[in-house]
Design a protein around this nucleic acid. Structure first.
Length: 910
DNA sequence: CATCCGACACCTA
DNA sequence: TAGGTGTCGGATG
């Protein structure tokens, strides 16, 4: 169960009539305990209570009691020897009217009305064994609000199916945003009287819910009427007490969906939450899942955490501002200058989602401004940071609505914090009618018109707006000379996973710049658009991106274009795993790159939160002064060619597990029809796999074995079924793989993917009969000196830098890794020495037979003789390169790049 | 034909 | 249930 599901279960439990006997079990069930666990507790097998309650070891001691006896029951629980013996973390007592509980490790206590105990669900969360308890506990309110809004949303769509259809989705989303605003407003005195909105609905709509939508509609209408027009508006008195809000929020279509009885009760239920606790930075990204059919399952668990957002914003501009604040000290004039500067900073997130980057940026700037005002003795000064300086583009309508709302709420909360409740209220209404979050496709919109660089107006230029342009951002900035920073976390999508529309988006951005855009990840288009934006005004940019944007084949496309335009990387977070609260959700590995066109200034590479100042950052995100290395079809510095293995997509029928091979042999199938089939996993882990290896001439004989005939037929079927035209054509020869190669000579085998934790890239040898899969490269009849190079530290440093990766795994490539690797002219003696060194490594491995490569190259357990053989190999090779051992990888890379540059210029000059 | 990559996918401790 | 580590298939040059 995730936190949202637990919240729902706990809320449901509180609403049911109290049953003293069943409560402890229902409580544990709500927190995700399994039926078998509960059964054992119920029949007493695992119930350790000495008070007639329920005591779960290492967890909680619960006791229900007679009315009025809660306090003494809790004391009894605390004093119970069984509580200590079972190491219970919590104790809980309730009589159905009140509930008291204590966290025995922290000493925290809860005492509340029984019906309200779900409000404290964060307190009990570790009962559910949720590992990220702290993060969830801190955001318990946002989770509860998300959960309840989700229930309301689903219920409303059930009663109003037309509101779920594409043409009314926007109305539905806008309606939800209005609701959230009202809940927030009624709890923060923005409306006159606490809980006014919920109370009015409760009081003036009938219990059968038939007129709920009318009452709400009337209230919404009131909020769209200026005080001066009120008299003529003929509002009902109970609606007239609502203030004028507008700001775009209550203009336009004021329709309200119809409420069923259930929906009405959900509504009142949500209204009873304490909305002052909302975190606009977190809440927005949680709530956006409500309107997303695909994401609703993992509701609210995918939000970008604040620390991750700060990884982008801090080095991009906040660090600089904080340094300026420190430098200003108490100097009033310097502080004033800094405040003026901050007031004109614009932050633009062209993939803003529910606006969390913008909200965090806003809050951080307000904090700096407040500190300036404090030092200048102007604490009740109105803020000079306009909300409209925080601009965004978002493709999902609901998220765009929420982003706008989150910023409004953030502004109010900052005003309360820095100026006081009274001042915040006075400044809040009516809302700014301007719209500075644009809903649309960022790759098809003109960023200059959404975030115009000067005070001069630029008209919208877009062909793919989802709404009338009138609703969209067209506000000019009055901040001539202000700074602009572009940031965000745009969507990633690998080049082979993009849909037609996404391909078109990429084409629009890149066509005219490069012909190779089809290999660029979707996120690359944001980098490129940001760079193009810089043609009009200087705007440093920093994005979270999939790490493959800084690896392998993408570097020579995107980064080459940016470098050509004079951009360099100002700071970079090297690859780290992007995490969120979603369970069972494999993450993605990302980098953060900050880019600008300034030549001077300091640069940083940040790895594991350790910041290192460097003179240069190359597109592979290391500090070396190196060129971009494009792939090469043929080896540039040797005659030795490295081939790609046999492509075996849609060939399952031709592949044999060892048991299947045995079965075929028992059926009398001749061994010459079968070969060992070797990919990375077989090479590294020693797994066995075989394949059918048939020639056209073998076909007649092979088909006499029914299983072989069946397997061939299955391959034919698979190949015809797929969408891939090229594979369809292969159905003509279903008895073999796409290629028939690699079946004769002794081969050097190089796995394609190998763990980054190994100290060497583990290539090996194999006899001629073994068939290489497309998960390995191989050198047919390869010289052993080539193996010596491939398994050297020197080559590894090249591979790690230049080749692509699978997450963090090394991903070998012949075109990028082998063909580009600088190899000096080798003398006969060099070759002989390298051959001996390679042989010694192979012998050292054999000494440990039958240990697998994975065993042998486990960095913790690598055998001494193998390590020594590698060391010797590195020694021989490195002496050939510089006459001694390299001191470290930096020296290795610098030498290799020096050679690469020299040898490639020489080659092209010839 | 030849490869590159995966807001991954799978398996195990 | 989190960490460790490489399959398979689509698509592209």
């Amino acid at each position: 169960m995730n936190a949202v599901e637990i919240e729902q279960a706990v809320s449901d439990l509180a609403e049911q009539p109290f049953d003293a006997e069943a409560f402890p079990f229902a409580f544990l069930e709500a927190f995700g305990n399994k039926p078998t666990t509960l059964k054992k507790l119920r029949n007493g097998a695992s119930n350790k209570s000495d008070l007639g309650g329920v005591l779960q070891t290492n967890n909680i001691h619960i006791r229900t009691c007679a009315p009025g006896a809660v306090a003494e029951t809790l004391t009894a629980l605390r004093d119970s020897p069984a509580t200590a013996r079972a190491k219970a973390r919590f104790i809980l007592a309730t009589d159905g009217h009140t509930l008291e509980a204590e966290d025995l490790t922290s000493g925290e206590t809860v005492a509340c009305d029984y019906i309200d105990f779900p409000s404290h669900f964060g307190f009990f969360l570790s009962l559910a064994g949720i590992s990220t308890v702290r993060a969830i506990k801190e955001n318990a309110f946002d989770i509860r609000a998300t959960s309840r809004l989700n229930r309301l949303y689903v219920e409303l769509l059930k009663d109003n199916p037309d509101w779920g259809r594409a043409e009314r989705r926007h109305d539905m989303n806008h309606f939800m945003a209005r609701l959230i605003f009202c809940f927030f407003a009624e709890d923060t005195d923005i409306f006159n009287g606490t809980g006014l909105f919920t109370a009015t609905i409760d009081q003036f709509s009938t219990r059968d819910s038939t007129n709920t939508h009318e009452v709400m509609g009337q209230i919404f209408r009131a909020m769209n009427i200026k005080p001066t027009d009120r008299a003529a508006a003929n509002l009902r008195p109970w609606a007239d007490v609502f203030p004028y809000v507008n700001g775009g929020l209550f203009s336009g279509n004021l329709d309200v969906p119809r409420f069923s009885k259930i929906a009405r009760s959900y509504l009142l239920h949500i209204g009873n939450l304490d909305w002052t606790q909302i975190n606009p930075d977190i809440f927005g990204s949680m709530i956006q899942a409500v309107a997303d059919d695909e994401e609703r399952g993992a509701l609210g668990m995918h939000y970008t955490s604040v620390p991750n957002i700060l990884k982008v914003l801090n080095p991009l501009f906040l660090d600089g501002l904080n340094a300026a604040l420190e430098a200003a000290g108490d100097n009033a004039r310097k502080l004033l200058n800094l405040r003026n500067r901050i007031a004109r900073i614009r932050v633009f997130d062209p993939a803003c989602g529910s606006g969390n980057f913008l909200v965090i940026a806003y809050k951080q700037l307000r904090a700096i401004e407040a500190e300036i005002n404090r030092r200048r003795g102007e604490t009740d000064r109105k803020t000079e940071i306009p909300l409209t300086s925080f601009r965004g583009i978002e493709i999902r309508d609901f998220s765009a609505e929420i982003a706008r709302l989150a910023l409004i709420i953030a502004e109010y909360q900052c005003d309360v914090t820095y100026r006081g409740q009274k001042e915040a209220l006075a400044a809040f209404l009516p809302l700014d009618a301007q719209n500075w979050i644009t809903c649309g496709n960022a790759l098809r919109l003109d960023w200059l018109s959404i975030c115009p660089p000067t005070g001069t107006g630029v008209k919208m230029q877009a062909d793919d707006l989802f709404q009338t342009p009138l609703d969209q951002a067209q506000i000019d900035f009055e901040n001539e000379g202000g700074e602009t920073y572009i940031c965000g976390n745009p969507p990633f999508k690998g080049s082979r996973k993009q849909k037609t529309q996404e391909k078109e988006d990429l084409e629009r951005v890149f066509s005219g710049l490069t012909a190779k855009w089809k290999n660029v990840d979707y996120v690359g288009a944001w980098l490129m658009k940001a760079a193009l934006y810089n043609d009009a005004c200087e705007a440093p940019f920093a994005f979270v991106a999939t790490n493959s944007i800084c690896q392998g084949q993408q570097v020579p496309i995107t980064w080459a274009l940016l470098q050509k335009r004079g951009f360099r990387i100002r700071f970079a977070h090297t690859s780290f795993k992007w995490s969120n609260l979603a369970a069972n959700k494999a993450g993605v590995t990302v980098v953060i790159a900050g880019v600008d066109r300034k030549h001077d200034g300091r640069r940083w590479i940040i790895t594991d939160d350790i910041r290192r100042e460097v003179a240069n950052i190359n597109p592979y995100l290391t500090h070396h002064e190196i060129d971009i290395v494009p792939a090469h079809k043929k080896p540039r510095f040797t005659q030795v060619q490295m081939e790609y293995g046999v492509y075996y997509s849609k060939s399952a029928g031709l592949i044999l597990e060892p048991s299947e091979k045995v079965r075929l042999v028992e059926q009398g199938v001749p061994l010459r029809f079968m070969r060992r089939f070797l990919g990375s996993s077989e090479l590294i882990n020693g797994n066995e796999r075989y394949c059918l290896w048939l020639d056209e001439a073998d076909l007649e004989e092979a088909n006499r074995y029914p299983e072989i005939a069946q397997r061939i037929a299955a391959v034919k079927r698979d190949r015809l079924e797929t969408e891939d035209r090229a594979v369809n054509n292969l159905a003509a020869k279903p008895y073999q793989f796409r290629e028939r190669k690699g079946d004769d000579l002794v081969k050097i085998f190089v796995p394609i993917v190998s763990s980054e934790n190994r100290e060497y890239f583990p290539a090996g040898l194999s006899d001629g009969s073994v068939i290489p899969t497309s998960k390995v490269f191989y050198i047919p009849d390869g010289p052993l000196w080539a193996l010596s190079i491939i398994i050297s530290k020197l080559h590894l440093s090249w591979i790690e830098t230049i080749c692509g990766r699978l997450e963090l795994r090394l991903s070998y490539s012949n075109t990028m890794g082998w063909n580009t690797f600088p190899i000096p002219k080798l003398t006969e003696k060099n070759r002989a020495d390298l051959t001996t060194a390679a042989e010694n490594i192979l012998l050292a491995r054999e000494a440990h037979f039958p240990a697998t490569i994975a065993d042998l190259y486990d960095p913790e357990k690598m055998p001494d003789n193998l390590r020594a053989a590698h060391d010797r190999n590195d020694e021989v090779l490195e002496r050939i390169y510089i006459g001694r051992r390299f001191r470290n990888d930096t020296e290795r890379l610098e030498k290799l790049f020096e050679m690469y540059t020299r040898m490639t210029t020489k080659v092209s000059a010839e």
